[in-house]
Design a protein around this nucleic acid. Sequence first.
RNA 1: CUCUCCGUAGCUCAGCUGGUAGAGCAGUUGACUCUUAAUCAACGGGCCGAGAGUUCGAAUCUCUCCGGGGAGACCA
Length: 581
Amino acid sequence: MHQIFFNSKDLSMTTISLSEQEIIRRNSLQKLRELGIDPYPAAEYPVNAYSEDIKAGFSDGQDHFGEVCLAGRLMSQRIMGKASFAELQDAKGRIQLYINRDEICPGEDKTLYNEVFKKLLDIGDTIGVKGTVFKTHMGEISIQVKELTLLSKSLHPLPIVKEKDGVTYDAFTDPEQRYRQRYVDLIVNPQVKDVFVKRTKIVNTMREMFNERGYFEVETPILQPIPGGAAARPFITHHNALDIPLYLRIANELYLKRLIVGGFDGVYEFAKDFRNEGMDRTHNPEFTVMEIYVAYKDYQWMMKFTEEICERVALALHGTTKVQLGDQIIDYKTPYPRVTMYEAIKTHTGYDIAGKSEQELREICDKLGIETDPTMGKGKLIDEIFGEKCEHHYIQPTFIIDYPVEMSPLTKKHRDNPELTERFELMVNGKELANAYSELNDPIDQRERFEEQLRLSEKGDDEAMFIDQDFLRALEYGMPPTSGMGMGIDRLTMFMTNSPSIQDVLFFPQMKPEQKPVELSEDGKMVLEILKSKSPVELNELKEKSGLSNKKWDKTIKDLTKNNVARVVKSEEGLFVESVG
RNA sequence: CUCUCCGUAGCUCAGCUGGUAGAGCAGUUGACUCUUAAUCAACGGGCCGAGAGUUCGAAUCUCUCCGGGGAGACCA
């Protein structure tokens, strides 16, 4: 859909599809050039102030700002003859400008005010102003503009959003446009920016915390020959020079553990992972996970660390551990309850599944109305019961611990019960936020677990893990006892910013490609063919030759003239159609 | 993948049981030197998502397709 703009036919189509307002702006651009004003100047603009700082720092009667110079986008104009008000939006907020004709045009030539400001500037243009700070009669802190510079002309009109007394009018809300044109969303919807500021603050807070403890931020391969560390369908690509398939990573776990083998005590990565699965309110094909591995720790230690992270992030963002989420208040104050999976199931179903056989579990599922199929083993059945009957109950942060061994091929067996593993998931608002283990470092056990996965895969489980021989070799060299944890950054951001959809916390959520501009219809092409042999041609003659019905003829000829490939000319001899170009 | 709602001017939306499109903002022209959703006057602006069908006639009814939202299924 990009190359379409490079062939001449479509180029002409994009030109004629300009709206009236876009044409006017292009004309203004031309007029500015004729006045000797470069609409896209190159020189540095010496900004020395921001809107919000000025508004926060201004006090009546004294001007301690002196001359300020700020730049931003022109968001509104209120023109009143020889003086005007306007609003400038910079990186921090908005401030009102007062523009007086004789202040910005001290000499005889009033062109800058009368022509440039009043006529040739538009909402959306980036401008720079120099002036002084003052307060209007109505009490609004404003800039008295002495010098006005166009820094960048805007050719595409912005949606106009107005606001009074906290009520927003004509808000730009269409989700499709907001996500496809996030830049517009960010310009006109200030609360959107806030979500992304918070997102970055979450990452910075975590990074700060890890660095304080001496953990080491690393980067590991995104293109992997074996997609490991999780159960998911990968994206596949091809490396030409090596002529091998490569996969976009679904997790980075196995690489981070290799680094623990290599002697780092603590490593972490904020990683983009990719999964070739469905998209919905909580899933995007690429998403961000923070994974951290710390040597000589176990999952008990990691629980404490994880709850500390959450508490600290909540405090950094909101100054309190209580965070609004939908109609709930989530309290991230530590410590969080630890509930074993067996306890959770007993609480919410009444069944004690400890020591139950596969057959017995299947019967319990039947009684609970949970569908099962014969390929499901013990672990899968237990996981199903938990997912259906328990998960959604855990609104406040809760650690669900001790998962069945079948579900956790990379996790160390529980020190007290070989059917279980030392694994926890942190549940918030009924959803998984983090997942952690005492990492399996027994290479023989690990190999057996991989082989079990291989058997599952042969049984038809398409998300069973591949065997990564090099990872096993690394474990054979010896990995210290380690605990690792992964936390979904998108999900955490959703929780911390009260965003109901993952699209609200991603700048550019995945969307289907936009539709191509419409091409000429078959009828249009056919009529054009006739025109090629004879042009101009009498209208009725052409209509007859085309053999089209009245309705189709009407539509087709309108199509051709709209697209500027044909033209109807009226002369004394009658109506003629001629081709253009 | 299923169900459901939506797609009309640059933006937000109205347009009912079919009769050929309306408002506010934005734009253009004019007036106005402290306005703030500025105001006042005039004007211009529409492949009514695309295609097909029913009809004398479709923004409106039917079907198909495209795009989006929501709910679910699948999936961590």
